[in-house]
Computed example of a mutant assay.
Amino acid sequence: MKKIIVPIDFSEHSEFALEAAVKLAKPNNAEILALHMLEMSDAVLNSTDSEQQQKAVFFLKLAEKRFNEFLDKPYLKDANITPIVKHFKVFSEVNDVANEQGADLIIMGSHGTSGLSEIFVGSNTEKVVRNADVPVLVLKHKLDKNDLKNVVFASDFSIESLAVYKKASKLFNTLNAKLHLLHVNLPSDRFRSTNEIDETVSDFLMKADGNLDNLKHINFVSDYTVERGVLNFANKLGADLIAVSTHGRTGISHFFEGSISEDIANHAILPVMTFKM
């Protein structure tokens, strides 16, 4: 992992993300790109009027000053951090910066810990996750640990999930994290017997890894919903992170049916990392 992007809006939650980036970047000597999205209208940015141009320069200087003050933190002293100010109006364009810079990960802080409102719906986090080609780590709280040792990655082990699994395996291997693969069996028309799950998982791992070495890391649980199964398993395991896959074309979609990824990301207390399918 060489580059991590952290969108900064000067909130407490963006500071959670920045601190987490430092903890994950240092072992890999990765560069942190602290990105501030300066929301200015095209009328101001492209105006030929001298007064409007002066106004644009004023806001740019003000944003840079506040940005530099925000980045003046003791924990950033030895970090390899690069501030970037972009004149974008929408957070979906964070993906453009990620692609330009060849970033490996985006880290964002997000609200919604009370459960009274969904953290993604209509939020900047949703826009980033929906459009990001790289993984996005979403935090609701300060990341207390310096590393992520145990990661729960839930999957239906379908062919469509192969690319995401490979991407997740590569990233978590870089972070020296142990990947706990999880299948949630439901008492519905999607119920599968133990033999059926074994066959599906074995076929999946042979296609993905070319061997069955990770079969020992597969976990089966039964529950009434996939969300409950994932959250209960993660809590029982004492996991540090939950990883889910998303469909960018439909927003925060999911790897099964319904709004599973969205529900997990909204209701999990643990950090959640999304991977675009």
Rank of each mutant, 00 (worst) to 15 (best):
F255D: 00
K167D: 12
N124K: 11
N173I: 02
Q54D: 15
L33D: 13
S193D: 10
S202V: 13
S253P: 05
A63H: 06
L139P: 04
A154K: 00
T113I: 15
L171Y: 09
I8L: 11
F91S: 10
I260C: 01
D49M: 06
D144H: 07
L105R: 04
L45G: 06
E93S: 13
V226I: 14
T250H: 08
F10K: 02
S169T: 12
N124P: 01
I106G: 06
L45E: 12
T174K: 12
E12H: 10
G102V: 05
H217Q: 15
E19Q: 15
A79Q: 04
H267L: 13
L237G: 05
K167C: 00
L116D: 05
S155N: 09
A208P: 04
I8T: 11
D223I: 02
T194V: 13
T274I: 00
L18M: 13
R192C: 13
F70S: 02
K127G: 05
L270N: 02
G210L: 09
F204N: 05
A34G: 04
L71S: 05
L181Q: 01
L24V: 00
A63R: 02
A34W: 12
G210F: 07
E64F: 00
A63N: 11
H87I: 10
V90D: 12
A34K: 09
N146Q: 06
R66A: 08
A30R: 03
S47Y: 09
F220V: 14
S193Y: 09
G248I: 12
Y165G: 01
L45A: 09
K167T: 09
D72L: 01
F58W: 15
G248L: 05
T174N: 12
D78P: 02
F153C: 05
P83A: 00
K2I: 03
L270C: 03
V152N: 10
F157G: 00
N235H: 07
H183S: 10
S117M: 13
G112L: 09
L33M: 14
V94L: 02
D96H: 11
K216M: 08
I84E: 00
D240N: 03
E12M: 06
N29T: 11
I252V: 15
H13R: 15
G122S: 08
A177C: 09
L45M: 15
E12A: 11
E31V: 08
G248K: 06
K149L: 11
F275Q: 03
A168Q: 04
V226R: 01
S253D: 05
A34P: 13
A177T: 11
K26S: 15
L24M: 03
M108S: 08
N173S: 09
K61R: 07
F157R: 04
M273K: 00
F275I: 01
V128R: 02
G258W: 00
F275E: 07
E51D: 14
E19Y: 14
A30M: 03
L179T: 01
Y224N: 11
L175Y: 05
Y224Q: 11
S47V: 13
S188I: 02
V134R: 04
S155P: 10
N28V: 13
F255R: 07
N214K: 14
I260D: 01
K145E: 08
D144W: 03
I218Q: 08
L35A: 10
A63G: 01
M273A: 06
V226M: 00
R130T: 02
N211Q: 00
V138F: 01
S50I: 14
K149W: 08
K149A: 12
D72K: 11
L71E: 08
